[in-house]
Amino acid sequence: MTLTPTAERWLKASGEFDRVAALTDLPVRSTSRLPGEPRPHPDPEAFLFAPASAGSTAKLALGLADNQALTALCEVVGDPTVRVVVCPQLSEQQARHPAWPRHLETLASVGVIVRRIMPDQPWTGALDALHVPTTPEP
């Protein structure tokens, strides 16, 4: 699990960071590793970016990797072997910004699945979009 710096602050302030960290045997990261440090995570088959702010979604569409979470995503956007699901959660005012549709079009054009999360709806749509189809065994 890789968090934006803001998400890490929220989880720590709410007391949920340790509970979330206990869900995996891998480190929960929000900062970049130093040169020469090994990669602490295996290469995943899929990424779920949720909830993604309007700003982080725009940065991803523009290739602006200014934190560890966006760096990891920017490295795989456009890779046909990795499923990327982005779930923006934003206000109606943010969604009306004239640049917003272009950001979504940019992401979709390289195979990113975008599923907006409304605050009053369950996240099952995001989780369903994350499903990576497999080939049945012969």
Rank of each mutant, 00 (worst) to 15 (best):
R115C: 10
G15Y: 01
P138V: 03
Q89G: 09
P27Q: 02
L26M: 04
I113V: 15
P38C: 05
A129M: 03
T6A: 15
L64K: 11
A13T: 06
D43A: 14
V114L: 07
L90F: 12
L34A: 13
P98S: 09
D79T: 06
L3M: 04
A52V: 13
H131D: 12
V20I: 11
L104F: 11
A72K: 14
S14F: 13
E16N: 14
D79P: 03
E45D: 15
E37D: 14
P136H: 10
S30A: 13
S53I: 07
V28Q: 03
W10P: 01
T24Q: 08
Q68V: 08
C87F: 00
V84T: 01
D25H: 12
S53W: 10
A69K: 02
K59Q: 05
V28M: 05
V86R: 00
P136M: 10
A52S: 10
E8Q: 13
G78H: 08
G78Q: 03
T134E: 14
T57D: 04
T71K: 12
L70E: 01
Q93E: 14
V86K: 00
I117Q: 15
L26W: 14
A72H: 09
P101R: 01
A52C: 12
A108N: 10
Q93S: 15
V76E: 12
V28G: 02
A61G: 01
S91D: 04
L130K: 07
A54L: 06
P122S: 11
L60A: 04
S109A: 11
E45L: 13
E75R: 11
L60Y: 00
L107V: 05
M118W: 11
